[in-house]
Design a protein around this nucleic acid. Structure first.
Lengths: 326, 326
DNA sequence: ATCCTGATGGCAATCGATTGCCATTTCTTG
DNA sequence: CAAGAAATGGCAATCGATTGCCATCAGGAT
């Protein structure tokens, strides 16, 4: 079923059929209706590659994530999916496996197959991201690069809240459990934590970097115990849950001896034991907003917001509590 | 950077360049090397839509899942991703939102943009699936349709194990908590459970259907309590975790008063409280196998395995225990 | 009646790569 | 050494849709 079949069927030229289908204003009403009826009847579906080739538009957006199996991305993928679907776009999900090299390679391959890219938690250096912007509309998520549109979840602000929370509970020595070193969010959170601690005249310490997975949590927990701290804030919930697990194994009471705070409020954070105090991130919204910003650019409404910051808030559960008496 | 630029640069015809790049055996060694060098130098990346249009092959495979946010799919997506990447294919992830209509619509749209489809947990009636097979290579996951290649995780066998497990612990009344009614796996599990119970002269009861989400778990838990059963097997871990949660809220002791068994061993099943006894499914492997079967067909090695069954095994954790004395 | 404008539809080029077919060259082989 | 086979490279058509440009026509203004 091609445009030509419809042309033959209706007696119009292929070009007219094309226009009737993709820019209805351009043809006469009765012509359009006849063609559309025929298209429906013949069960016509436009050929995506062909359209892409001639028009340069693919109606597809790539979403790059560092690890599909990280629950943090579920909401993002879903949010993006919704918004894209509504706009008639398809989503191409790409897993960069936390590797900058792979990310670069994949980006260059998808370049001409998509109309835009959403870079979620890119591991690329800033200049590389800016480079891509020259060839393709880009919106980053949880990542800032000069001149590149972005939506970031304001975890720095959340980290402040977390620090206040812990200090109010009497904690004096709080450790930051760092995530992957090439993660922008990781640095942002660490900076925020240092500032927040400094405001109370306290120094923050840091351990890591650790991979953003539950497994890394074991190592992190052990390192954490060595510091003698009474509380920690982990780069993300995956690590935090891993820590919880390991502390449980070692018989360390949470929050009795150590308080643990995570980031992101992923699936599972509410039912692990003890349930995790964490920074709730509006991830699904982030996905939606990122897509809408991306598509806006396509429509040349460039005057709009370039950098959106989404608020977080601390969700207190049972993994944090009063600091132990010494 | 197109094939023509390389042609101009090297002095060969575009057709030769094309061949040097995509079927190296067809051109002379020195020619090939010169062209490949030029391609590398000019940073040439083949245009996917163009290639798709002329050759009909897109080097892309669609993976349809009923809900991206269901952790069950992580492993599957990952496994598929790996295998596809290795074969030089891209993955197009499609969320059908548990709706047969949407599934149909999306299928018809992606039809000509992909070389094959992996239908994970399709909600489509069997005949519809067979219909698609006529137009496109298809491999189903956890779903059987006559003549369609499939990889299914042998949860029926697992369900048997689970039933034996519960019966050995003294349970006599075991309830099946049903999932979505158009899910094939759901029916398969229920059948298996009935047979297994019958083998011990016991009748199985069933409640539901419930949606495959944690939220449905609350309703399921309440319904479960009404049955007076001492144990249940839930369609999947999502529901099981929801049940656990609700039972906790209502002060029902698990496994003291009720034992709960899930299916799939998803992310979180090991750290919820109590940790969930469940049927571990080799999901990642399923993804890999499904892809390799799909690509095999493309290569016309049709003689191979058409229906692969992957084994499950019961992972006993703390949500199941001795039946209470009555 | 004349000229202009806007609406409408067709022609044909184009996007970038693939591929069937053919001409030429080189290699086998008897 | 001749004849046939294999290797190699080019030409040009092709995939399906889009789009710039032009021809035609109707309606309106003068």
């Amino acid at each position: 079923m091609t445009i030509n079949d419809i042309a033959a069927r209706t007696g119009f030229a292929a070009s007219t059929v094309s226009r009737a289908l993709s820019r209805p204003g351009r043809v006469n009403r009765v012509t359009r209706e006849r063609i559309q009826a025929a298209a429906r009847e013949l069960n016509y579906v436009p050929n995506v590659p062909a359209r892409a080739l001639s028009s340069g538009r693919t109606a597809t957006v790539a979403v790059l994530v560092s690890d599909v199996t990280n629950p943090f991305y579920f909401g993002l993928i879903r949010g993006a999916q919704h918004e894209l679907r509504a706009a008639g776009y398809a989503q191409m999900l790409v897993d960069t496996e936390d590797s900058p090299e792979l990310e670069t390679r994949l980006l260059s391959t998808v370049r001409q197959s998509v109309d835009g890219v959403i870079l979620a938690a890119s591991r690329l250096p800033g200049r590389a991201i800016i480079g891509i912007t020259a060839e393709l509309p880009v919106v980053t998520v949880n990542r800032n690069a000069p001149g590149v549109r972005s939506v970031v979840i304001d975890s720095p602000d959340g980290v402040m809240q977390a620090v206040e929370h812990l200090i109010s509970l009497g904690h004096r020595q709080v450790v930051y459990v760092a995530g992957p070193s090439c993660s922008w969010a990781n640095e942002a959170r660490w900076r925020a934590m240092r500032t927040a601690m400094a405001k109370h005249g306290l120094a923050a310490t840091r351990i890591g970097p650790f991979g953003a997975s539950r497994r890394s949590g074991s190592a992190a927990a052990d390192a954490l115990l060595n510091t003698g701290a009474t509380a920690c804030i982990a780069f993300n919930d995956l690590i935090a849950i891993g820590i919880l697990r390991r502390l449980g194994e070692r018989g360390v009471d949470v929050p009795g001896e150590i308080s643990v705070v995570g980031c992101d409020d992923i699936f599972g954070a509410d039912f692990c034991s003890p349930p995790l105090t964490t920074l709730a991130a509006p991830v699904e919204q982030a996905g939606r907003v990122a897509v809408s910003m991306l598509l806006e650019q396509n429509l040349a409404v460039r005057a709009s917001r370039r950098n959106v910051i989404l608020p977080t808030h601390l969700t207190v559960r049972q993994s944090s509590g009063r600091a132990p008496r010494r």
